[in-house]
Design a binder for these strands. Structure first.
Lengths: 258, 258
DNA sequence: AACGCAGTTCAGCAATACCGAACAGGGGGG
DNA sequence: CCCCCCTGTTCGGTATTGCTGAACTGCGTT
C-alpha cells in the first residue's frame, strides 16, 4: 500500500532535519534501520532532486535547497495562508500587535503566516514555528472548533509543560475549550512563553470545517488588561469571520463533525 | 542507481509546487507520465509523511505542512545561513539597506537570509526567492568566484530578460565577471527589477570554495550614486570577508577549481 | 606499512513497485 | 429513474526494481 522506498527517503530527510547539521551514510543507516548501500542509493536520489546536498570535504550529507523552494511553494499554494495576508495586516494595524495564522498538524500548531507588529524593533519571523496545541490560543481555537473525536484524541495525548502556566489538567482544558466554543475565541496566558499572551479565533472554509486560526500575540501586560483584552477579542473574532467568509464559509456553516 | 519511485515522488511534489494549488490523481498521472494507481500509491505515501494533503471535498491533492518544516530545517542546518545572521544585521545597520544572503542552485540564486532595512515601511521577506544568476549582483558574485567550468556552463545556458537592463550579451557578462574578480564585488543595475540595484560579494568556506554571497539591495537612486556606491562596496566586501572567516576561510583560501 | 573507518560499487535475488482491469461514488443529462 | 462520464481507489499477478552482503576505494591515524 505505502511505497516503502519513499517512506525510507522521508525518514532520511527527517533525520537530517532533526539530527543535523550533517550526517554520514553509516550513521543515517543506523538511525533509519536500513543497509548502507540502500541509504546511499536513496541519498543519491534525493541529491539528484536537490533535497539533499553532500559536503565535498567530509562526504557527509545535509538537507538541500529544494526543500526551501517546496516549503515556500506550500505557503504560496496554501489558500488559508494566501487569503489571510491582507486580513492579518489589517488586524496587526488595528490591534498594534503581531498576528499569526496557523493550522493544526498532528498535535502541534504550525504558523503559516506572521504579520509583524506595526511598531517595534527587530522581530523574528515565526512562519514555520511549531507549538503544542494546548499551550497556545491558536491551538485551543482550532481544537475547540474541530471534530469531537479529534479533541478527545488530542486531550488523551501528551500535554507538554513549557512554562509554569502550561495546563495539563484535562478537565481544565476541556472547560477552556467549552468556553472557546461559547465566546468564539481562545486566550493564552503565558502557557507557551513566559510573558507572552495571545487571543485567537478559528477560521472555517466553504464546507464548514475549521481549517485554521488567526490570532494576535504580545506581552501579557498589554494584551490581557481590560478593556483592551475584550476589544482585541472582538476584533480578532471579527477578522476570523471575515477570513472565513473569504474562504467561502457562510454565516451558519460551522461544523464540528468528521 | 537512482531509486525510481523516489524520483517519481519528487516529480509529484514538483508538479504540485508548480501547477497547484490542487491537482487530481488523473492529472498528476498525466503530468508525471505514470499510471494512476502508481501515482495514487505515491500520493498516499507522501500524505502519510505529511508532504501532501488531500482536500476532503474535492479529493484533490496539495502540498503538505511537512515541507514547511523541512524548509525551515534546511535554513536552521545551513551553516552559511546560520552564521550570516549577525553579519547581515550589522551590514543592514551600517548601510541602511536590506541585506540578502544567497546560494547558487542550478542557474538561479536562492535567497537563504534577508535582513530588513532598518528604516522603512512594510518589507516583504524574500527568503526562498529564486533569481536568475545573471540578473543580480549575488549571482554574478557567486559565478565569478566559482569554478571556471561552472561559469562557462552557466554562460552557455539561458540568460533571462527580466527588464530592459538585463544583460544577455555573453561577452559583456564575461567582462563583468572579470571585473568582479578584480574588485571583489558585483554590481546590479536594474537587471532584475526596474528601480532596484544591488552590491554583493562572494563568501568562502574553510576549503576555499565559494559557498554563497552576501549583498545589499535598494533603490538605484540611493545605491549607485558616488561616493555612496564605493563606500557600500567596501562595506559589503568587508562583511563578506568576515563571514568567510567565520566559516573557516583563511586570507588566501579562495579557490576557483572544481 | 598496516589498520580502521566510512563512503561507494557490484551483482544476485526476491520483494516490492507497477499497472491493467475493475470498482465505487458523484455529478449531469435525458 | 436510468445511463453515461469522470475521477479517486482497490485488487492481484508479475517482472522489474529495490535491497543488501560482500567487496572496493580512499583517507586518516598509528
Amino acid at each position: 500500500m505505502l511505497v516503502q522506498s519513499v517512506r525510507r527517503a522521508a525518514s532520511i530527510l527527517r533525520e537530517l532535519a532533526a539530527a543535523g547539521p550533517r550526517l554520514g551514510v553509516t550513521e543515517l543507516a543506523e538511525r533509519v534501520g536500513v543497509a548502507k548501500p540502500t541509504v546511499h542509493a536513496l541519498l543519491r536520489t534525493l541529491e539528484a532532486e536537490g533535497m539533499v546536498e553532500q559536503d565535498a570535504e567530509t562526504g557527509k550529507y545535509r538537507l538541500g535547497s529544494s526543500l526551501l523552494l517546496l516549503g515556500n511553494a506550500y505557503l504560496d499554494t496554501h489558500e488559508l495562508r494566501t487569503r489571510s495576508v491582507t486580513w492579518a495586516d489589517g488586524l496587526a494595524t488595528r490591534t498594534g500587535e503581531a498576528v499569526w495564522v496557523a493550522v493544526l498538524t498532528g498535535d502541534h500548531v504550525l504558523v503559516v503566516h506572521h504579520a509583524f507588529r506595526p511598531e517595534g524593533a527587530v522581530q523574528i519571523l515565526e512562519v514555520g514555528a511549531s507549538i503544542p496545541w494546548s499551550t497556545c490560543a491558536l491551538g485551543k481555537a482550532l481544537v475547540a472548533a474541530g471534530p469531537i473525536a479529534d479533541q478527545e484524541r488530542l486531550l488523551a495525548g501528551e500535554l507538554p509543560v513549557l512554562t509554569g502556566a502550561s495546563v495539563t489538567d484535562r478537565a481544565e482544558l476541556t472547560a477552556q475549550l467549552e468556553q472557546v466554543r461559547r465566546v468564539g475565541y481562545a486566550v493564552e496566558d503565558q502557557e507557551s512563553t513566559l510573558g507572552d499572551a495571545g487571543i485567537a479565533a478559528p477560521v472555517f472554509d466553504r464546507s464548514g470545517h475549521v481549517v485554521g486560526a488567526i490570532g494576535i500575540v504580545g506581552p501579557v501586560e498589554r494584551l490581557l488588561v481590560e478593556p483592551v483584552r475584550q476589544d482585541h477579542a472582538v476584533t480578532v473574532r471579527e477578522t476570523a469571520r471575515n477570513l472565513s467568509r473569504d474562504l467561502g464559509a457562510t454565516r451558519t456553516s460551522h461544523r464540528r463533525g468528521a
